[in-house]
Amino acid sequence: MLSYIFRRILYAVPILVGVNLLTFTLFFVVNTPDDMARMQLGIKYVTPEAIEKWKVERGYHKPLLFDQAQDGLDKLTHTIFFEKSIAMFAFDFGISDEGRDIGYEIRSRMLPSFAIALPVFVLGLFTYIIFALIMVFFRSTYIDFWGVVLCVALMSISGLFYIIGGQFLVSKLWHLVPISGFSTGLDATKFLILPVIIGVISSAGANTRWYRTIFLEEMGKEYVRTARAKGLPEHLVLFKHVLKNALIPILTGAVVIVPLLFLGSLIVESFFGIPGLGSYTIDAINSQDFAVVRAMVFLGSLLYIVGLILTDISYTLVDPRIRLS
């Protein structure tokens, strides 16, 4: 397995380089270093001299990808792309264009994002599986029918509607929790209740239906009939046998997003005033802060790759027949 993981890590390197190159190209197609400098320095009274100084200090005065004026390998290394990318592969995200340590910002913003994403993930997974199993248990009854109708209805509504509707009902009309905000420690609970509930409900339709489909497929298999024939109660059949055998497709969807939980949600964080990484990325895009955008995209792709590797490893844990080689 170790050699498999090592190989996957090696595969990740060209993927990360490719993602980095793509981000770099897309960013600089839209923004020039001069634009970035103007955005940081302001529009009023900014002189060309100040713009040039800003670029030199941050290394944006160099060519983007290829320096014709240099010799040999310097043609490639004496460029913005190389100089900005090489440190990142050593996890040195550097300083943002507004002069703050990106690593520090990521560390301090990771926890608020995680404080929402983890409960949404755990509660969501638990709720969707339970509801899917109940619908399977009551399959072909009115409960199953109305359950599917409810799922389709939930899927059809925009995520933003849940947020605005939830804030309107729960916070504005009923005054049960604050509309937005964040705090640390136990005080954070009152701010997390609503976004977590909304996070769970907004994905309930699609996920419950997906899990129901998986479980229904399993229900038709021989081992289920055997379990019933042995006289096992239905809840044991479902929770002990069907759930266990359906874990592979569940893990495929679930484990891959575990590392991404740290990255937060753009819309939820914005509406609920959560100082997480989602809003950090949005702020960086708005202020054309390439250093932050690049770091966040790099981190996102890296965590996605980690998620995929973890998914593969989790297969071996739930199904002994699978060997990674």
Partner: peptide
């Protein structure tokens, strides 16, 4: 000073006296 990016929560919190 609390940071509010969106207008809806900002407005409703004003109406609630916050």
């Amino acid at each position: 000073y609390t940071r509010e990016r969106e207008g809806i929560p900002r407005w409703n919190k004003f109406l609630q006296g916050y």
